[in-house]
Write a protein that binds this DNA or RNA. Structure first.
Lengths: 225, 225
DNA sequence: TTACATTTGTGATCAATATCACGGAAAATC
DNA sequence: GATTTTCCGTGATATTGATCACAAATGTAA
C-alpha cells in the first residue's frame, strides 16, 4: 500500500516521532499528488485547508510584492510547505510552485492539529522548523540588502552547490529572470555577473549548466562582495 | 504578590489559555526584570536558556549583517521576544534591545516546554505567533526591497502611528540612524525625505516629534513609492 | 521543418541613492 | 554651565545597478 506512511521513504523528522496509531491516522488522512514542473501547489490569495508536505522534488516560495512577484526562497524535499500561511490564516499569504517534477502530500488540517496536540515531540519538531525558517528569513534579508550583486550571486551559487545539489556541478533550476527575483536584481545584471564569473574562470557555464571551478574565490566574493 | 501571573495585567494570549495550576507553575518559574532604555535583553552570539516576554515597553530586534547591524523590526509589548532564536539554537541568532524603559519576564525554558507539551491551546497560540512573524518577515522584506525610500519611510511613519502608538502624533522612538537601518538606507537619505515631507505639509516635524498632517497622501506614497 | 515564443547576452544611457564633507544643534557628562 | 559626544541637515559628487534596445539563441508546438 503506497499510501501507508509507515512505509514511506520520505518521512519528515516530525513524522518519525509519531506512534504507530498516530501514523496510521496520518495514513488515512492524507493524499499524495504528483506535480509537473511549473505547477502551482499553493496559490497566494486562495483558501487553504490542508497542510502540504513536499516529499520529493524542488519548489520555490514566492510572494506578491508591491511591484512584482518576488521569490522568497527555493526549497527541496523533504519539507513542509506553507506551514505559516496555512496556520495563521485561512487565506494563503504566499505561493508555492514546483520547479521540477515533484510529489506533495496533502494532510487534513484537523488531523495535523490533532497530532500536534497529542504528541509533544511531533509538535516540537514543527515548532523548531518554524523557528529555523524565521531565523533564516532574517539572515537572508540582511544579507541580500547589504551585499551587492556579485556577493549575492556568489551566495546563490554556493547555496545551490552545497545545500540543494551537494555537488559543484549542477544545472540551474531556474531562469535568469527567476534568479534575479530571488536576489532582488535585474535579469540583465545576473547575465552580466555570471558572464564575468565565467570569464574569470570562477565557474564554467553553458546555458543553465554550471560548474564551480574556484570555490575559494567564490566564497571570498560571497563574504566581501 | 506582584509575581503571581494570575494577577498580571499584561498576560499574553497564550498565557490566558493556561489552567490555574499551569499558571501557578509559571508564577514559580519566572523572573521579572526592569530594563532602562538602551539596555540589551538578548545578545546575538550569547547563550540563552530562558524565554523572554516583553510585558511592558518597546524593543527593537537587530541582527549582524555582513557589513553593519541591521534593525529587523520594532516591537511593542505584550510579546514574546526571541522565541525563534531561543528554540532552534542554544546561541542567540539576533539581538533584542529595549528602546524605552521596559519590563521583561524571563521564563524557565523547561517550564515553557512543559506548558507547550501539556496545553494544546497554549502551544497553538505560540505556533500561530511564530507563523505570523514569519509571514510578516516575508512581506516586509519584499516591500523594503521593491519600494524606494519615500515609500519605505511613509510605511514606517504609518506603522508607528497605526500600530505602535495608535495616534498620528508621536515621538520617534529611534534616531535617524536607526530609522535608516530599519529601512536599508542611509541616515542622510532619511533626513532628506523627512525634510521633504515636512516642506510638503505631509507631516509636521520638530526633532523627533512627528505629526502626520496628510495621511491620505502618505498612504498614497506608501503604495506607489 | 517551420514558425513562434521564450530566454539570454551585451552595449549605452540614466536614475536613485550612497558617500563625503562640513557646520550646527541637541543631549549627555562632568 | 562648560565640555564632550552624539545626532542632525544639506550641498556636491560618485557609483551601482536599473532600464532600454536589440540581436542571438534556445526551446516548443504545429
Amino acid at each position: 500500500m503506497e499510501n501507508r506512511c509507515a512505509l514511506c521513504r520520505y518521512k519528515s523528522d516530525a513524522t518519525k516521532k509519531l506512534t504507530e496509531e498516530e501514523e496510521e491516522l496520518l495514513s488515512c488522512n492524507h493524499l499524495m499528488v504528483s506535480f509537473k514542473k511549473g505547477e502551482s501547489v499553493i496559490k497566494q490569495g486562495h483558501l487553504s485547508s490542508n497542510i502540504a508536505y513536499l516529499r520529493k522534488g524542488l519548489a520555490k516560495l514566492h510572494i506578491k510584492g508591491p511591484y512584482y512577484e518576488q521569490t522568497i526562497k527555493i526549497v527541496k524535499a523533504p519539507r513542509y510547505l506553507g506551514l505559516p500561511t496555512t496556520f495563521s490564516d485561512k487565506i494563503n499569504q504566499y505561493s508555492v510552485t514546483v520547479i521540477e517534477d515533484s510529489e506533495v502530500c496533502f494532510i487534513d488540517m484537523a488531523t495535523f492539529q490533532e497530532l500536534l496536540g497529542n504528541n509533544k515531540k511531533f509538535a516540537n519538531e514543527i515548532i523548531v522548523d518554524l523557528c529555523r525558517y524565521e531565523l533564516d528569513s532574517y539572515r537572508k534579508c540582511a544579507n541580500r540588502t547589504q551585499k551587492q550583486m556579485k556577493g549575492n550571486i556568489a551566495d546563490v551559487l554556493l547555496d545551490f552547490a552545497d545545500n540543494l545539489y551537494g555537488s559543484d556541478t549542477f544545472r540551474l533550476p531556474v531562469s535568469r529572470d527567476e534568479l534575479a527575483s530571488l536576489i532582488d536584481t535585474s535579469r540583465e545584471s545576473v547575465s552580466r555577473v555570471l558572464a564575468e564569473f565565467n570569464n574569470d574562470g570562477i565557474i564554467r557555464m553553458n546555458g543553465r549548466d554550471i560548474e564551480i571551478l574556484n570555490k575559494k574565490l567564490l566564497k571570498l566574493i560571497s563574504e566581501n562582495g
